[in-house]
């Protein structure tokens, strides 16, 4: 019971995910700043931003549904945290069962749908536009992402993240066999996190703040926090599926390797957001369905052939 609570609240649950989220965000902002010849924020800036948002007045337009607007970030936050619980951290897996990969992917989709709903219930023109865009984007990246992520599952002959990691300790990291799948997973992850260059739903110059334009105060803080945690969960997931070969390393070494892998992922994400321009939504749909899906299918075909 107490152990369970510890898992839920501290490691690998709430506290750990939030701390990682803040750390990754700081690292990302600092890297981006240095790429752009700026100094960048001090280490406590993400936390300070969060505290500021939590202490601000909570407003909604007249006629908006307060209950749903408050529930949406809470539900998606809990979905993301739950997904985080099932993801092994440096080989440590408190809860794992056959098929948890599917549960994680399902839970990771909840924030996107909630984001769309937040745009609808908060009754702003920009929110509606942003919400519609987030769904369009969802349909563009989700399919190639799911096809790509089923690659490790087929190769590892398991639908649990821990199982896939175990298979990698025997066969070597899957990124070697599925470099294409790894790239597609990163593209999908960027789309899921609505990061630059796939920040179409929240593009400031086009739709102001996207779905969250009318959301303020604690709710906005919660939205930002859950997106940070979503980034952590996504990064951990991709690392475990493609670089998760450290199960049998000594404990301290495996933590070190895991941290280094996380840093590499953050650097990859920062560099992508620094060097690519935002696509138009029709261009993204074209990219998703005409290029990414065929590539993902190619990768799967290759994986199946390898399995045979």
């Amino acid at each position: 019971m107490i152990e369970g609570l510890f898992f839920l609240l501290f490691f690998p649950g709430l506290a750990f995910q939030v701390v990682c989220g803040l750390a990754f965000e700081w690292l990302d902002r600092k890297l981006l700043a240095r790429f752009q010849r700026r100094v960048g924020p001090p280490w406590y800036q993400p936390l300070a931003d969060l505290i500021k948002l939590f202490s601000k007045e909570d407003l909604l337009p007249k006629g908006a549904n307060h209950l749903i607007a408050a529930l949406l970030p809470l539900v998606s936050f809990s979905a993301v945290l739950t997904a985080g619980l099932y993801i092994p951290v440096a080989g440590f897996t408190p809860f794992s069962f056959e098929g948890d990969l599917i549960v994680i992917l399902f839970l990771m989709s909840v924030p996107t749908l909630a984001y769309y709903l937040a745009g609808i219930v908060s009754l702003g023109v920009y929110s509606v536009l942003g919400g519609g865009r987030s769904l369009l984007q969802f349909f563009s990246y989700e399919v190639p992402l799911l096809i790509a992520l089923s690659g490790p599952a087929i190769l590892g002959q398991s639908w649990s993240v821990a199982g896939i990691m175990e298979a990698q300790t025997v066969q070597g990291p899957f990124v070697i066999f599925q470099p294409l799948g790894f790239i597609l997973a990163i593209v999908g992850l960027i789309g899921k996190l609505k990061r630059d260059p796939l920040d179409i739903p929240s593009a400031k110059s086009e739709v102001v703040g996207g779905s969250l334009t009318e959301i303020t105060g604690t709710k906005l803080g919660l939205w930002h926090l859950l997106m940070k945690v979503q980034a952590v969960v996504g990064i951990f997931l991709v690392i475990n599926l493609y670089l998760g070969w450290l199960k049998y390393l000594p404990a301290h070494l495996s933590i070190l390797v895991f941290v280094i892998e996380c840093l590499i992922m953050v650097v990859i994400l920062s560099v992508t957001s620094a060097v690519f321009a935002r696509l138009r939504i029709d261009q993204l749909a074209g990219l998703g369905w005409k290029i990414l899906v065929p590539l993902a299918l190619l990768q799967i075909g290759f994986v199946i052939l390898m399995g045979v």
Partner: peptide, 16 residues
């Protein structure tokens, strides 16, 4: 222009 199409890096470099 670069900022509006999401290329913040060119924005910063051009303004530098």
């Amino acid at each position: 222009l670069a900022k509006h199409v999401g290329l913040d890096t060119i924005f910063m470099h051009a303004w530098h």
